[in-house]
């Protein structure tokens, strides 16, 4: 599968040290059709460059949200408009 026809455009947003390591806070990307879960997406992002490799080096240290709701790394990204990546939260 080439993924060209079935690739999806999704907005990715990065926060805190994930944002700093990636080098920007938001981008629109075309994701290949064979990327099914958040974990797949993280593995795909790792290969996008040094900043991404650094930011996503330890997937267990990263949390994700699909359309602004917390999800596990096994969550399916089908139909997502926006996916956020960030460290465990530290407010309060």
């Amino acid at each position: 599968m080439t993924g060209i026809a079935q690739s999806r455009d999704i907005t990715l947003r990065y926060f805190a040290w994930v944002r700093e390591k990636v080098g920007h806070s938001e981008e629109r990307v075309s994701i290949p059709a064979d990327i099914a879960t958040v974990a797949d997406l993280v593995a795909w992002l790792q290969a996008r460059g040094d900043g991404y490799a650094h930011a996503f080096a330890k997937p267990s240290a990263i949390r994700a949200a699909i359309d602004q709701k917390h999800v596990q790394s096994s969550a399916l990204i089908h139909g997502a408009r926006e996916i956020g990546f960030f460290p465990p939260v530290t407010g309060g």
Binding site: F15, P87, T90, G92
Partner: peptide, 8 residues
């Protein structure tokens, strides 16, 4: 709030 609200 400390474990779920997205603040850093």
């Amino acid at each position: 709030l400390k474990t779920e609200a997205p603040f850093w």
